[in-house]
Design a binder for these strands. Sequence first.
DNA 1: CAAGCTAGCTAACGCTCGTTCGTGCTGGCA
DNA 2: TGCCAGCACGAACGAGCGTTAGCTAGCTTG
Lengths: 194, 194
Amino acid sequence: MRSVRATLTPDVVLDAALTLFAARGYHGTAVSEIATTLGVRTPSLYNHMGSKHELLRTIVDGTTAGVLADFHAVVDPADRPADQLRRATRTYACRHATRRREALVVNRDTTSLEEPAFGEMQARRREHEHALRAVITRGVAAGEFRVGAPALASFAIRELCVSIARWFTDDGELSADAVADQYSRFALRIVGST
Amino acid sequence: MRSVRATLTPDVVLDAALTLFAARGYHGTAVSEIATTLGVRTPSLYNHMGSKHELLRTIVDGTTAGVLADFHAVVDPADRPADQLRRATRTYACRHATRRREALVVNRDTTSLEEPAFGEMQARRREHEHALRAVITRGVAAGEFRVGAPALASFAIRELCVSIARWFTDDGELSADAVADQYSRFALRIVGST
DNA sequence: CAAGCTAGCTAACGCTCGTTCGTGCTGGCA
DNA sequence: TGCCAGCACGAACGAGCGTTAGCTAGCTTG
């Protein structure tokens, strides 16, 4: 049985780091600030983590892997492109509303990753990008979408969803689902869905 | 007449800082790195700048002021909302393609600003946001636009343009003007322009 | 009740940071 | 030609960084 005062665990440390990284950035956050947040002295953290950089890597790896898993979970290859795009963007948008901190860190502090983590992360990002672009290209070929530059539309839609993390709050008038719904509609409009 | 070796000036220092801040972030950039870039020792920089933080403030102030000036320069109150939105977004998008570094710094390192610079910057950002939203609201009222949540559309369009700075390169197949043109089209689609 | 492990603590490390000071070279002007 | 201002420099600063080592209190287990 665990101690009654089982305050510090790897998960708790990671969560506190996530909050601070999202607010101040990776380089803008001191390990001592994570400790203060948890009511603990700095060296104690090292019983539950490898290094500051490892925290960042864990956050980025988990998030980018989750994005890809989400995509393949909701996009049915048998669906029509419009449905594929709607489901893909709704899920992607929803993730950025419900997991804001992760999204902010991934999109701001990715450049602070060292190799090989940086390369792996880029590869996953590219895979998602290409998968989304393929949906758009198929929609254009099928005559369902009307858009001049599929690559541009793909960038636009992805970044549109990402930006949700920058302004969404849980206590606003719109729920995460409502925002995700609206944004998937925006995405369909961008590609000129009929 | 200036010396033949007039290498270091406030402008040159600011430009080097801008490049590095954009690439590594404000906290991720050391003053010594700026010096190295310029082939100079660190203390020499202080003959041409006040402090590292002042560099950031100068960048952010200049950029956000420029955004507002752009908006009022191209948006004619007498125009129809669709033309206002097209011109506003085209200009805003173009700025993010041609002044990538400034855009990246403003949208990533704004949280590193201290007061009162941070508050002033937020005020300008809000003014631009409200001005754009007003255009959309007028368009809806005039029956030119069909969009459920004008605030959401306004956020979406702004962030759409901002994101250009994250992928645009001068040596790509599309020019800044071409991208800005496409994106202003996306904006009109988002608001359901007739 | 004794042994051993877990985990937080103090202290200290080597390092890098942003910034200041005082010196001395150098180029422009009287 | 001699003076002066400007400016790059070496040296050094105090502070803070991420991280490690070693101690010890207290819980778990036999």
